[in-house]
Nucleic acid binder design. Sequence first.
DNA 1: ACAGCGACTGGAACGGCGTTCCACTCTGGA
DNA 2: TCCAGAGTGGAACGCCGTTCCAGTCGCTGT
Lengths: 239, 239
Amino acid sequence: MAPRSRRPERRQEPLSRERIVTAAVELLDTVGERGLTFRALAERLATGPGAIYWHITGKAELLGAATDAVVAAAVTAEPTGTADSPQDAVRAVALGLFDATEAHPWLATQLATQLSRTPWGTVAPRIFESLGRQVQAMGVPEAHWFTATSALMHYILGAAGQNAVNSASAPSAGPSGHHVDRDEFLGTVSTAWQGLDPDEYPFTRAVADQVRGHDDREQFLAGISLVLAGIAALHRPAR
Amino acid sequence: MAPRSRRPERRQEPLSRERIVTAAVELLDTVGERGLTFRALAERLATGPGAIYWHITGKAELLGAATDAVVAAAVTAEPTGTADSPQDAVRAVALGLFDATEAHPWLATQLATQLSRTPWGTVAPRIFESLGRQVQAMGVPEAHWFTATSALMHYILGAAGQNAVNSASAPSAGPSGHHVDRDEFLGTVSTAWQGLDPDEYPFTRAVADQVRGHDDREQFLAGISLVLAGIAALHRPAR
DNA sequence: ACAGCGACTGGAACGGCGTTCCACTCTGGA
DNA sequence: TCCAGAGTGGAACGCCGTTCCAGTCGCTGT
């Protein structure tokens, strides 16, 4: 028999690793890296800190799982129907990751941490696989698969890390204030670079005004094209 | 006895920002990122935590200064006389950073953090300048200076981050145990990749054995060549 | 010679963190 | 019906970054 109404059920839904990770991502997105604490997470899940440890080993695993979840979503997403060429497919994967680091400002730092701390995890293979298949499709000889795919991945991760916006002053979060903040940010960098010592930093000063008002995505894609051109030049000379 | 006519000098050397940063780097190298605490730092400097705050704003600035010090040393170093070509000069700068991340396992994570948190700091311009001068010397048209230099920097930072070894199990630190650990590490990754789902990760599994026993530096330089080839192909078509 | 005064020191204390511990509740199977 | 154990959650522990402040040091004007 099921005596219905009486029991309010210990909780609406039972705690689970998935629910915890989802809440962690939301917390990271809203209050930033420093805001993700076991206490805040417990409060959001209407439980205590101890309960979380039944499902997750510790904070390292929590951050790893959050990173993996976001990367998986970014890499899996197939935005525009089907890509025409392997090169376009590479661009799609790269843009997926790029957009993910913009949507989740904490992602760039975490990617660096996760990949250097536990490269045998699921994050690296996910990215590596989706890029590598396209390298394969481009006709690169097998001996150069690893080199070419690694170069692509390294560039993407490096660029994504660079373009992540500051997440310290989190809670402003204007839904449309994005571009304004970005322009202001670039202006700050440009001005700072122009104020450098002319003897020590002539080149950086010379390109400082190219920084102001440039398009991140465009710049990012230009770099992708550059690496792709390098792959074509070095690893497919006779075609 | 009169209480002290002689003064033992408050300390051998007075506290200074430079001494603090040096000690912080040593602490990071020996006990890792988690081992750098204000208490440990104070003990090493024979003082209290409070004294450090007179010279350094907080932990963020401390980590930034440590990163900057190591990067400055790595970029400034001119290892082998004079480089023959701009391309070789780029390789020299890149290898300097690559070696620095091997000597200081904490550097990769910190670079990502510093560059995404305070890109107007001194770290980014240092790297950007030393790479950009060579891009300039390669004859790249001015309109593409920023794109080409950024691509180089992004690849270098991404690759350096990837190749940083695990620093959690720090204190083994055998002076000659380096290669053994590295081989063991690569073996672990290779085995892990071979054990992936054949349906989801066919490419990663296919290149898994290329991972085992490969030379990090060689691989890194191959990637540099690839980006350089891309620059030559796209930004200097008529020469 | 000496009082005065910033620059600088360092130990104590505070709030908050990750993590551990454990008494407890709930539930499925014997 | 009852019990073993999966699952829970609040209290407590040790350590962290940071702040506070009573001192000490070495210089300055007189």
